[in-house]
Design a protein around this nucleic acid. Sequence first.
DNA 1: GCCAAGATCCTCT
DNA 2: GAGGATCTTGGCT
Length: 199
Amino acid sequence: MVLARGFYSRDTLEVARDLLGRMLVRVMDGIVLSGMIVEVEAYTRDDPASHAYRGMTARNRVMFGEVGHAYVYFIYGKHYCLNIVARSRDVEAGAVLIRAVEPVEGVEVMMERRGNGLKSRMRLEMLTSGPGRLTEALGIDARHNGLDLTVGGELYVEEGYSISDDMVETTSRVGVVKGADRPWRFIIKGNRFVSRVRV
DNA sequence: GCCAAGATCCTCT
DNA sequence: GAGGATCTTGGCT
């Protein structure tokens, strides 16, 4: 089931938390590439690190638009980053950066796409463990900026697995999900929520 | 128009 | 652990 618009029409941090365990799906030339979302970061309107902090510009206008749409931007002259617009109704802007996924379907295609320059040193953990890496592996770029992710098609998010709060053991900054195939590490940075698979 | 910084990744030491 | 790659964006003049 593709996640519907309502999923994204909530507090940005809440959506970020709930995106963990969901499946990011990219259909490219009829081939399905997918990965489980394992690291996210929430960017709210009032976060100085957010593109929306200084108000709407040509680049960030998607963050001010309808929830459930993709905000893709180019960074460091090399990389694309995928965000999903998410915020509650009374908030002006907000988005969740997808920082990492765990490859599930189409691993060989992802390997091919990421293979250049990495050669034999390519390891599975390196395939999609970073915002720039996952967009390269899944073939996500500026063409997807503004795309509605709630209607299926070439890029969407589906239910996947839900990670319940009682699976998380939290300290002030770090938590670990118990009972998963792999242990997970959760990090809170200010009002941002970050989680990452421990390797 | 100019310039510095950037939600990163990779290679080399 | 440090530094280079590479180019868009936005602030400032």
